[in-house]
């Protein structure tokens, strides 16, 4: 199974990953129409303090506390990816509360949102990794 490895050493804090994430999950092919004049809600965020920055998204934990704590069964783990069924989510935000990384976000409609490694959109593989200009995000194979 695949994981996004975060290499803080090489993160430039340019925030391209946030925009590529929002674009990949937009269902709109034209980037201008997808992102212009909109407040983007990426599923990955640049965390920063001083000059140190890194891009954080769902870690897809082995023993995911968000899956365990989901009251509606919307969170599941399939092939190493923690998935979200938006139909089942009731918006209680328990997962937001329990996630130790703060990697679960709330979308505009109150339903939660999270990184599914772009397996749930047209990209198929993480757009943030491909778009990072400095190799600060790397897709690597890890043991299940």
């Amino acid at each position: 199974m695949k994981r996004i490895k975060i290499l803080q050493e090489w993160c430039l804090g340019c925030r391209l990953c946030e925009y590529y994430c929002a674009y990949a999950n937009s269902d709109i092919k034209d980037m201008v129409l997808a992102l212009k004049d909109k407040e983007i809600k990426p599923k990955l965020v640049i965390e920063s303090k001083g000059t140190a920055t890194f891009a954080l998204s769902c870690r897809h934990c082995h023993d995911a506390i968000c899956v365990k704590s989901c009251i509606s069964g919307a969170m599941t783990r399939e092939n190493g990816v923690t998935r979200l069924d938006r139909e089942k989510c009731v918006g209680c935000q328990t997962c937001v509360l329990v996630c130790p990384f703060g990697a679960v976000v709330v979308s505009e409609d109150g339903i939660i949102d999270k990184c599914e490694l772009c397996t749930n959109n047209r990209e198929g593989e993480p757009k943030c990794v491909r778009g990072c200009p400095n190799g600060a995000l790397v897709l690597e194979e890890v043991e299940a």
């Binding site: 430039l12 804090g13 340019c14 925030r15 391209l16 925009y19 980037m31 201008v32 004049d37």
Partner: peptide, 13 residues
Amino acid sequence: DYRCIRCGVCARQ
């Protein structure tokens, strides 16, 4: 200006 999405990457870089 039409294509600019105001992401600010240019300013940061």
